[in-house]
Write a protein that binds this DNA or RNA. Structure first.
Lengths: 119, 119
DNA sequence: CTAACGTGCAACCTGATGGTTGTATTTCAC
DNA sequence: GTGAAATACAACCATCAGGTTGCACGTTAG
């Protein structure tokens, strides 16, 4: 039995809509999603990330920076490198937001069922 | 009753990254998320939606149109009204994408555990 | 020490986004 | 039948996003 405890982020400060905007906006780009995927698997430097994309190093740098300010990845200095690492907690946060929408839907179904049962 | 079909079928096997882009992009706006929330609870016309936002009717129309082309809501004609209704399946789709990322993270943890166990 | 590497950053361009207003069309109420 | 309501749509505008190039700077390798 698995217990889900992903409502953690909700009992703190209500996540401002700007923060949520930034998270989903950051997820709305295939290159950035790929960076998340790769850095979930293992830490990578920006240049090693940049090698596989058909765009300039600076463009990849910008994508990483977007992900950092959305809280989806961390960047840590190791010598001249910056190692990028995904933050699963933020991903889980986005997941929990979507789950709340699904819950609204379930509540609606429950209410409709209740209406039918009342007949 | 007329149903508008300018959405993309997301049941298609490989959800092209453009489709995913559009889903997350559509979610990256507080007004649009609120429209989703309200139309998950119950169907609403565009004008009834527009009443509560501090922007023009046309702006709300555009937001709805963005949501439609992301497959996050449906628009159905009832007389002179267009009733907007959220599509929980697309929301669930976005959720499942995030869940896949989380799975990558778990796989990584498992591999690290395995490395430790090998010692 | 010096050259190459990895990065940060600014300036710039282009297309997309999010808002506006105005006009046309269809439908409903009276 | 006429006017108001609900919507569609186009044109327009300001800002933002995603890409580029060029240059500066710390770090590492030889």
């Amino acid at each position: 039995m698995v217990v889900f405890h992903d409502t953690v982020a909700l009992d703190a400060e209500p996540p401002s809509s700007e923060v949520v905007d930034r998270i989903f906006r950051a997820l709305a780009d295939a290159t950035r999603r790929d960076i998340i995927r790769r850095t979930l698997i293992e830490e990578e430097s920006i240049s090693s990330l940049a090698e596989t994309y058909d765009m300039s190093f600076a463009a990849v740098q910008k994508h990483v920076s977007t992900l950092v300010s959305a809280g989806l990845v961390d960047k840590t200095a190791h010598g001249r490198e910056r190692r990028v690492r995904a933050r699963p907690d933020t991903i889980r946060h986005a997941q929990s937001l979507l789950r709340q929408y699904e819950q609204l839907w379930r509540d609606r179904i429950d209410r409709l069922d209740q209406l039918l049962a009342d007949d």
